[in-house]
C-alpha cells in the first residue's frame, strides 16, 4: 500500500465497494491518502488476465480488533483494468 510516507505492508481483512479494512505493523495516519491495487484472479473472474483495480482513498479510522490494530480506508477513486 502506498502512503504519503512511502510503501507499507498490509494484510487485507475485509473489503467492500466502499472501502477496505486492513492490518499492518505500520498503519497510515487517519485522514492520510493511500493507494493500493486489488488483484482479482483470472481463474475466478473468467477473464484472460487478472482483473486489476487501481484504488486511491484515505484512512478514515483505526480500530482495535483483539490484539490487532486495524485501519479502515474508503475508496475515493478506482480504475478497473484487465
Amino acid at each position: 500500500m502506498e502512503t504519503d510516507d512511502g510503501w507499507v505492508d498490509a494484510v487485507t481483512e475485509n473489503i467492500s465497494a466502499n472501502g477496505l479494512l486492513f492490518a499492518g505493523r505500520q498503519l497510515p495516519a487517519v485522514n492520510s491518502r493511500v493507494s493500493f491495487n486489488l488483484s482479482m484472479p483470472s481463474a475466478l473472474m473468467g477473464t484472460e488476465a487478472d482483473v486489476m483495480i487501481y484504488c486511491s482513498g484515505r484512512i478514515v479510522r483505526h480500530q482495535q480488533q483483539g490484539v490487532e490494530t486495524m485501519a479502515a480506508a474508503v475508496i475515493d477513486e478506482y480504475l478497473l483494468k484487465a
Binding site: 500500500m1 494484510v11 477496505l20 486489488l38 488483484s39 484472479p41
Partner: peptide, 8 residues
Amino acid sequence: SVGVPVSA
C-alpha cells in the same frame, strides 16, 4: 492459474 485471495 490458481485463484488467490484478494489482497492489497
